[in-house]
Design a protein around this nucleic acid. Structure first.
Lengths: 207, 207
DNA sequence: CCAGAAAACTACATCAAATGCAAAATTACA
DNA sequence: TGTAATTTTGCATTTGATGTAGTTTTCTGG
């Protein structure tokens, strides 16, 4: 594995990085809507058309690393341990996701500005919600696959939707009220753990 | 109240209705993205520019009645009954929302095509998720206002997010799997009731 | 190092959504 | 009926996004 990629690949990576960096700098400096794709391309020293061969849309630059989180969680879901109930596995997956995020400072630095943009620009918020929604579908599907007897697909969706939905709204509202990133993360995590724990209680003493 | 509105107002309503009708017919016939605003305007017998004085964007035609549901729910939240806990009020509000919807056949007919479009077209799904998200914020805010002692704003957000999030994902996944509108509604309702009931159990026996 | 193949980049042209603006048409009202 | 207020319209403009054809760059094998 990990052969040194050729010049072509390295250049592509550099261009991609240059586009992302230039885009974020411009977005932060003069606002998302006020920045044109042409300006981004110029700042990254490529043609406008080339921008669109790296990103399908202006929005996509913001979400370029949006799949990292979900894929981490999916890997955990794919490896259930003996004795796990669905709720246990989901708990471990989500907890693992939080701690991965908490440890990765690089990721947090990248996510900070993106977060601010998503919070402020409606079209980006919509896009972010869509991506999160699709991730939830994947997560529900994976959870159902891991415990096909215990949870139907729709039941898994209900559980995943509740856990993620609660965390999402709590975090967002918290941040809207001026909480620091740390407080926001904590609010989201607490909401997730709260929902998980009530679900766990419900599943151990079935009615 | 209810003076007969003048000719000007009546014409505006007619034009608005014509735009909505024409838009939906064209969307269903040849697809959302394949339909241009200019075509909609022509079908409704107005200029393209006029379309944009009725709707801020092409997407907005789809969601013209998106606030009806949330406003109904907010009205219920605004009238707590003596003895209500937050979870009781939320339960009643959501249940009332479901039954209002179930009874209103006109609404269902209107919502059918819109739903299909939202399911199929990603940009519309994103927009729908954004609107639902903002509604959840309002709902959480209202619930917090009704029970400021019992629930902080962030706690109310966690609860509302969990209830709505579970129902949303369950309904969507159900429909994606080919369920009929009735089955879909049932799946969403069951998910909502499931989350509500586990939360209710948790809140009556606090740890 | 060179020639040919493959890939990436660029410079167009084009289309649709959306906005601003001023002139024309319509409605309201005294 | 005449004038004020409002709505509609046409036109220009900006921007995101896509298709295409030709040029440049990189890769590969000799």
């Amino acid at each position: 594995m990990s052969e040194t990629p050729g010049l072509r690949e390295r250049k592509k990576l550099r261009t991609r990085h240059a586009l992302i960096t230039a885009a974020f700098e411009l977005f932060m400096e003069k606002g998302y809507e006020q920045t044109t794709v042409s300006e981004i391309a110029t700042a990254a020293d490529v043609s406008t058309r080339t921008f669109f061969s790296y990103f399908a849309s202006k929005e996509d630059v913001i979400f370029h690393n949006s799949r990292d989180g979900i894929e981490h969680v999916l890997r955990v879901i794919a490896e259930p341990r003996p004795g796990d109930r669905a709720i246990d596995l989901l708990t471990r997956a989500v907890t693992s996701g939080f701690s991965m995020f908490a440890l990765d400072e690089q990721l947090q630095r990248e996510i900070g500005p993106a977060n601010h943009l998503v919070m402020t620009v409606p079209s980006l918020r919509a896009r972010g919600l869509l991506l999160l929604f699709e991730s939830q579908r994947e997560l529900a599907e994976a959870l159902h696959r891991a415990f096909p007897e215990e949870l139907s697909l729709v039941e898994a969706s209900a559980v995943v939707g509740a856990v993620v939905g609660g965390g999402k709204l709590a975090a967002f509202v918290s941040m809207s009220n001026g909480a620091s990133p740390e407080e926001t993360l904590k609010a989201g995590r607490q909401a997730v753990e709260f929902t998980l724990s009530t679900l766990r209680a419900a599943s151990s003493q079935p009615s």
